[in-house]
Simulated assay, not measured.
Amino acid sequence: MQLAKASDDAKALFASVVPDDPRVVVKPMFGNLGAFVNGNMFAGLFGERIGVRVLDESRRTELAATDGAGPFGPGERPMGEYVAAPSAWSGEPERLAEWVAQAFEDVAALPSKAPRAPKRTKR
């Protein structure tokens, strides 16, 4: 499976819409970026698309119905509960930032994700 890589412009847009909050951790993921709070991802960058985790089903349906929105992640395995924002919103960062901020607030209310145990090495 070929994974889309994010451009520097897409990374800069992503950084500009992620909330400036000490609980936010932005990590590289497969050549892209993910924004996490309490160990849970709330927004991601996949290629040139920014996706947000929308926990409320009616709001997820609302965003998915927006012209240009779609599934988020690899075409073969889109991520559940995530919607890719319309590409046209790259020219409307404040609109994109509102959805990212709402995703942050919703996901921050979830229980913290326990860190995975380190992988054991073979001897």
Rank of each mutant, 00 (worst) to 15 (best):
S90W: 01
Y82T: 00
E98K: 15
K5W: 06
D20P: 00
P71H: 11
V52W: 00
P93A: 03
V83A: 05
R59I: 05
R116F: 04
N32V: 06
K119E: 12
S58R: 15
M29I: 12
A88L: 08
V17M: 02
V26L: 01
M29T: 11
K119G: 11
V25D: 10
A117D: 08
A85F: 10
P74R: 14
A117G: 09
G39P: 10
G70W: 00
Y82N: 08
D9M: 01
A84K: 04
A114S: 10
P74H: 12
M79D: 00
Q102L: 14
R23T: 10
L45R: 01
P71N: 12
Q102R: 10
K27E: 13
A65K: 08
R116I: 10
R59D: 14
R123I: 14
A65Q: 10
M41N: 06
M41R: 03
A117T: 11
A10L: 00
G31K: 06
E48T: 06
G34C: 06
V52C: 04
S87R: 15
F104P: 05
N40G: 14
P118S: 08
G68A: 01
A15I: 02
K11F: 01
V17K: 00
M41E: 04
F30Y: 09
A6I: 05
P118I: 09
T121R: 14
D67K: 15
F72R: 03
E76Y: 14
E92V: 04
T61I: 04
A69F: 03
P78N: 12
F42Y: 05
E62S: 12
V83L: 02
A35E: 03
R120W: 06
D67G: 13
G39L: 05
A103D: 03
N38T: 07
R23V: 12
V107F: 09
V83I: 10
R95N: 09
A10H: 00
K119D: 13
A101Q: 11
G68F: 07
P86Q: 07
A117C: 03
P93H: 01
V107E: 06
G51M: 01
V83N: 01
A43V: 11
L63Q: 02
P28S: 12
A117W: 03
G51A: 01
A101K: 10
A108H: 09
G75N: 12
V83Q: 01
A114F: 04
S16E: 11
L45T: 02
G51W: 02
A6N: 06
